[in-house]
Amino acid sequence: MTEVTIDKAEDKVNEITEKKKRPRRKRREGTLARREAIAGYLFVLPWVIGVIAFLIMPLSNSFQYALANIKMTPKGRIISFVGYQNFTQIWFEDASFPTTIWGYVLNTLLSVPVIVVFALIIAMLLNDKIKLKGMFRLIFFLPVIVVSGPVMGMLADQGAATVPSMNVTLITGLLEGVLPGSLVTAISSLFENMIMILWYSGVQILIFLSALQKIDTTLYEAAKIDGGSGWECFWKITLPTIKPMLLLNAVYTVIFLSNNEQNSIIVMIQDAMFAASQGYGYASAMAWLYSVVVTLLVAVVAIVLMTRKDAYDRQVAKMKRKHRKDAREVRKIRRRNRRNEGKIASTTR
């Protein structure tokens, strides 16, 4: 009885392991491959040096600064280690930083969908067969060329950043009854700087446009033959196809908004850097906190828009799981066999 089961198990083991038994020779790198690799290293060498000198070293220095108090004296810098005091000071004693950063998070979370949806709409309009396509593209891309901190500041000061004849106070008044205060200010500032926000969508429009142009038109024809309307085509064909671009654009927008000179936190950091009472250490701590927040925002956006696995991917994952399970079973059976063989040997002796 036991021998029968052992035989069966052995068969199964052979069956499963047969696939893996293909001879896999470890290929050694030839001289050509090695020479190519060396050439590759030489080509990217400037970048590697740059990363070490301008990314990794400053990063570690900045971390060191963040935990220290730096005094500038005529003799040089005096760095005294103070631990996490900078952070506690920023977070608990300075009222301005937490409120500013909270406002920034709200603003970004509100404007990213606006920018991305708006860019998508314009890209779809431009993707239609229209006349003067070149001229419209010229207009929508123009802001990318002129947008810069001082120019935006000048225009915003003059009130050129609001859509004319849009009554912001009315909208604010309406919202105040329904929503909490901080959200209302964020939304009203969104409306106030509507044009500026629209101006940030130039690159995104182009990215969407080139993605839209690459969609296979036969898909739409097939859908139309099956009686799909334009609305259905958008949700079932256009949107799933350009979903990776949606993610790309959203992340790009978050980064753009965060690293923008108009951003009040960036101005704050710079001010703190040269302020007598605060200095480099304080500013570094601020920058670290800020970059953590930005990274979190990027992560949130990425998770929300991450492409879900389609049926094929799910199948692959399932098969992989099954293989792993099989392999585990094989190991188990082998172990049992060995044990049983030992037992049989001992009993026959």
């Binding site: 690293n259 570094s284 920058a287 800020y290 970059s291």
Partner: peptide, 10 residues
């Protein structure tokens, strides 16, 4: 992705 401010000071 990293904000340039963090490496700016060093």
């Amino acid at each position: 992705i990293l904000p340039p401010q963090i490496t700016m000071m060093p």
